[in-house]
Write a protein that binds this DNA or RNA. Structure first.
Lengths: 239, 239
DNA sequence: GAGTGGTCTAGACCACGCA
DNA sequence: GCGTGGTCTAGACCACTCT
């Protein structure tokens, strides 16, 4: 897995130190980090090197910088996390905020495909969340979510869960989601889709298969979403 | 549209100069730009300022830097452009390269929705391309592409067009695609889908509605793709 | 006014590609 | 060995926020 770089820049080492501290919760979400000058003194490097690290982590949306105020851990607030990973919108481009429909939460042994997807041990347990979310009052999204139980102990007692789970993951479990990999496909609505969302069986459904990755590189969520596609689109910008 | 910044950093002005030169073709795709030192001398700024600009444009994939060699205009080669904006893959993650199926090209007056999408004048003309592409020998993608005719004069004489049009846009027409906005939805296969791709009418189809934007901010392509979804997914990473 | 991040500069040295 | 980009430093000054 690892190549031998033969050369490891200083800012890389500083980067790793800062990431480790963020992941370990040395600084809390929303809190200010030490200033460039202070951290530079503490680590024995120049301010420019700290700046390079902070800039990189800001680009990755792990930190936020505010001129005159300081550098902060980026907060996955409801509003922001919402539109960072939630890509559904009306065809005219209008973004929508989903609301609570229904949910069930279970903790159970992981099955083979789940262990593979989340890279879990043979005896691992998972949390399974099934929920329906509404858009403008109408059932529009069915989600099936699987989490490793060791990272999210007690989450089943927190229901009803908030709209944006990633905000909860960060504030209650110290899990910072930084990347998601999604695979979209078109499928036909099943009888279950009809029961849960009221769409006609056989109508087109957008299916989103997502793996979410948290800050110290680990796959921590597998989410299957089934979305009614009559008046919704998945909007994304490629660069 | 424009706020008054009240303060315009030097690197911003340099950035604009470099972008203008790239868009005007002062340097050709694949060519080396002047070195940081030389450009710094020419523009009367420090090397660090040039570096900041080059780094930003490298992040935007407009430039490519190679230690020991120089800084180059990023080339939309077939291989690279392919996988930058072409997101279709097998469910197991295997990326595929489409091949030529059939195509027809027309030049005609723009219709109202096309003028709106591409921000064209009332009397503008457009190039219309309809083509079918194959994946592993099987008809899999129907594309309907609309381009402003003024930017792509004579493209109708170049057929058969290559797999990746963006490579052609760059090398033959000086149009650098840097961003695409896509809206995905699920629909049912029509009789036309059946004729062109052999899929059963009523089976699920992934529809991709794309607007492509080129370097000096302008919408230069509207593309509607209909993709058979039986063994294909649209894969994307969100950060 | 004090403290923060943002810009800009100048210079040294390192890693890399190529002739 | 030369020229390129990549790293690292030190210092000056600017813009912004808060008290």
């Amino acid at each position: 897995m690892n190549e031998t770089p033969g050369f490891r820049p200083l800012y890389r080492q500083v980067y790793d130190i800062v990431v480790r501290r963020v992941a370990q919760g040395v600084w809390r979400p929303g809190e200010a980090l030490p200033s460039e000058q202070n951290l530079a003194r503490e680590l024995g490097v120049s301010q420019g090197t700290i700046r390079k690290v902070f800039d990189a982590l800001t680009a990755e949306k792990v930190l936020e910088r505010h001129q005159g105020k300081g550098t902060f851990i980026a907060e996955n607030t409801q509003e922001r996390a919402q539109f960072r990973f939630f890509r559904l919108a009306r065809p005219d481009g209008k973004r929508l905020a989903p609301s609570f429909g229904s949910e069930t939460i279970r903790v159970r042994a992981a099955r083979a495909p789940e262990r593979e997807r989340l890279e879990l041990a043979r005896d691992a347990r998972v949390v399974e969340i099934d929920r329906v979310r509404l858009l403008e009052g109408v059932s529009a999204i069915r989600e099936h979510i699987v989490l490793p139980a060791d990272l999210f102990a007690g989450i089943e007692k927190l229901g009803p869960l908030p709209n944006s789970l990633y905000s909860l993951y960060q504030s209650k479990f110290g899990v910072n989601i930084v990347t998601t990999h999604e695979q979209l496909s078109a499928q036909l609505a099943t009888a279950e889709d009809h029961r849960q969302m009221g769409v006609d069986a056989g109508s087109p459904i957008l299916v989103i298969d997502r793996t979410a990755v948290c800050l110290p590189e680990r796959k921590v969520e597998w989410r299957l979403s089934r979305v009614r596609s009559d008046d919704l689109v998945y909007a994304v910008t490629l660069t």
